[in-house]
């Protein structure tokens, strides 16, 4: 039986990898992929807590899985809008390097 903390360690490791991608990559699409990894780590956590420790002392509810479904929805919306912004920036600046996009800097 794989216990809860093993899942939590896996999720924490995946979250850290994704966070490194977000912080360190230069290409904006690679940053978006790092965000996807972080969202997946959160999903693992939500489902693992649903499986092992449910609120209300283990009564029957689906809160963890329902939250994961909403994370799916938000991730789909986020990646669609994010890629649209990246493509729009690429059209005007011919670059998707995050530090070269400084239109809103002053």
């Amino acid at each position: 039986m794989v216990s809860l903390w093993v899942y939590l360690v896996l999720a924490a490791a995946l979250f850290s990898i994704g966070a490194f991608g977000v912080l360190a990559r230069r290409n904006a699409i690679a940053i978006l992929m790092g965000v996807e990894l972080m969202l997946n780590a959160v999903n693992i956590n939500l489902v693992a807590f649903w499986r092992f420790v449910r609120p209300d002392g283990g009564s029957e509810n689906m809160f963890g899985q329902v939250f994961t479904v909403f994370v799916f929805v938000v991730a789909a919306a986020e990646v669609a809008v994010g890629l649209a912004i990246i493509i729009s920036v690429y059209r005007s600046k011919r670059s998707v390097i995050a530090e070269e996009v400084d239109l809103l800097k002053w």
Binding site: L10, N40, I44, V47, W50, V69
Partner: peptide
Amino acid sequence: VAGIFILLAAPFL
């Protein structure tokens, strides 16, 4: 991650 969901008894996810 999909395989992990299966292990956590969430096949729909």
